[in-house]
Simulated assay, not measured.
Amino acid sequence: MSNSQVTICMSTYNGEKFLSDQIESFINQTHKAWHLFVHDDGSSDQTLNILSKYAQQDPRITVLSSDPHLGIKKSFLTLLEKNESPFYAFSDQDDIWEPQKLEKLTAKLESTASIEPALVYSDFKKIDAFNAPIMDKTITPGNTTYKSFLRINTVTGCTCMINLSLRNLLIQPLLNINFDLMYMHDWWAALVASAFGQVYFLPDQLVAYRQHGSNTIGAPKQRTLMNQLNKIFKLSDRYFLNGAAVQAKLFLQVYGKHLSTSQREDCQIVANLFRSWHPLSKHSKLVANHLLMQDNVYNFQTNILLLTPPKLRNSHLK
């Protein structure tokens, strides 16, 4: 079994209800070489007291409570700066990790070239507030290519691990990033990894992903026919689709000079997707550059937005 150190990055906010279950699942890991760094984002409940109790009991736990309110994206990415280790894992405050999560993810990354930026993520199962399983279908992890991650994210942050090379790429430009333009930290990490290294998927369900009323970001909903039709007619994913375009523009600003010519062209196509009204040419570019999404519902909504006049489209996206 590997002895490689894993830095676990956790951001908390009023997480008293499920936090102990999550931390206990760290303690029960078969891979014991880990150190947890927690940024609390201004909790007003018992979260800090719970963290303090565990930190007193286990020297592998460090609580950072003096930083200002950062928000979830900046909180997670700045936590990467707090410690240098071969591997890093993101953690929510309310899930439960399977005992072999760190062991299996570490083994996968150790089997890859250490100098290449890499991210590995796993499947997960859903549980409710009482730890009961939720029998629900989710989106099957799709392509792990750069073209795919420009349009959609299949990486759930609490299931992933990154190596030191990717961590260095992520923290280098942090001071110059407008986090309002980033959709989510896990998507951003996957996009960087796919552009400059590799993204790997393990089919093992290594996280019990908790679904409850206080979730900041939920797992994909069940994909029934009525659900899909409702999404189309209400343009339910318009903020997500536009968010991908906005994030692509930010990615071009931050990493554009390091991209290949074809990577820059793909990123530019996505970044400009909803910035003017040329629906046929924009759709043609998506097709020609293999940037259509694997999900026909998303593609259908994209085409509706492309056909919508800019003034009306902008009102939809506000």
Rank of each mutant, 00 (worst) to 15 (best):
Ser2Ile: 03
Ile8Ser: 13
Cys9Trp: 05
Cys9Arg: 06
Ser11Arg: 10
Thr12Val: 03
Asp21Ile: 01
Glu24Trp: 08
Phe26Asp: 06
Phe26Leu: 05
Ala33Pro: 00
His39Ser: 09
Gln46Asn: 14
Ser52Leu: 04
Lys53Cys: 00
Pro59Gly: 09
Ile61Gly: 05
Leu64Cys: 09
Gly71Thr: 03
Lys74Ser: 03
Glu81Ser: 08
Glu84Thr: 14
Gln93Phe: 13
Leu105His: 05
Thr106Pro: 01
Lys108Asp: 07
Ser114Gln: 14
Ser122Phe: 06
Asp123Phe: 14
Asp123Leu: 10
Phe124Ala: 10
Ile127His: 04
Asp128Val: 11
Ala129Trp: 06
Asp136Val: 15
Thr138Ile: 09
Arg151Glu: 07
Gly157Ala: 09
Ile177Thr: 09
Asn178Gln: 10
Met182Val: 11
His185Lys: 02
Asp186Glu: 03
Ala189Tyr: 02
Ala189Pro: 01
Pro203Ile: 10
Asp204Glu: 13
Thr216Trp: 08
Ala219Asp: 01
Pro220Trp: 07
Arg223Val: 00
Met226Ala: 15
Asn227His: 15
Asn227Tyr: 11
Asn230Thr: 09
Ile232Val: 12
Phe233Asn: 11
Lys234Arg: 15
Ser236Ala: 15
Tyr239Val: 08
Ala245Met: 03
Ala245Gly: 01
Ala245Trp: 02
Gln247Tyr: 01
Lys249Pro: 01
Lys257Asp: 10
Arg264Val: 09
Glu265Trp: 03
Ala271Phe: 01
Phe274Asp: 04
Phe274Pro: 00
Arg275Ser: 15
Trp277Tyr: 13
His278Phe: 07
Leu280Gln: 10
Ser284Val: 05
Leu291Asn: 12
Leu292Arg: 14
Gln294Lys: 10
Val297Met: 14
Leu305Ala: 11
Leu312Arg: 11
Arg313Gly: 08
Arg313Val: 03
Arg313Trp: 08
